[in-house]
Nucleic acid binder design. Structure first.
Lengths: 122, 122
DNA sequence: CTAAAACCTGACGCTGACGTCAGGGGCAAA
DNA sequence: TTTGCCCCTGACGTCAGCGTCAGGTTTTAG
């Protein structure tokens, strides 16, 4: 498939896909005229890249992790970085949960000046 | 207290505190000579700001939320934004957990080429 | 009194993940 | 063949949350 279709199917922009290629996160074959061509597997790969990005991993780190995600092998350094990242995500989850609880407390306690949309809906 | 002490007690930089003031997130009294002076309560406020920042909220959004966090009151629009943000955080937690589990799977399954640091430590 | 430390206001720099515009090919339908 | 859409490569723009430097004032310790 060409880049436009991949963009549509993954929900990321064409620009982003070209950016991923710049960062060596995503390979593309080329037609004789130079247009990018992707295999089916690219869809899953892009989704994985997006997932890692939105978890706050940098492209450099993702670049390091991707090979071992695919092969299932990791050299020691990579393994350590994997563990470090997992722990970082764990801590981030903890903090997010605390923040959410804080917002919940505010939502629960605050006596609204006027009915809220949700109350109107109820 | 002056800005240096507040910075030290909250762990954020002096620059950041001035930035918060620029964004109207943090008030400061001034001495006749123009130096900023903060009340004790500022410590907690800065910590709250930091918490919201690290949960991914923008300064504009925080600006909107802070008054109702402090007063415990929220007008309907604000209440809706609070709920929306809480839901967003919930979704983000879900995704982070999925990502973490994915990393865990890799960590668990991958047969390292060489012993990892953690294995050496064990 | 004086030197160091802390503070002030601009204002430019930085980083990452793209958005966007310019200028120019390629390819299927009508 | 022409219309129109998709594609290409630069390359500059953006935005947030500060870092950092410059050049000058204020406070504090000795």
């Amino acid at each position: 498939m060409r880049i436009g279709e991949l963009a549509e199917r993954t929900g990321v922009s064409v620009r982003a896909l070209r950016y991923y290629e710049e960062q060596h996160l995503l390979r593309a074959d080329r037609t004789p005229s130079g247009q990018r061509t992707y295999a089916e597997a690219a869809v899953e790969r892009v989704r994985l890249i997006q997932q890692l990005y939105s978890a706050g991993l940098s492209s450099k780190l993702i670049l390091g992790l991707l090979p071992c995600v695919e092969t299932g092998e990791a050299d020691p350094r990579m393994m350590d970085r994997l563990v470090a990242e997992r722990d970082r995500i764990d801590r981030q989850v903890d903090e997010l949960v605390r923040t959410r609880d804080r917002l919940d407390a505010i939502i629960g306690c605050s006596h609204a000046a006027h009915p809220t949309t949700s109350e109107r809906a109820a």
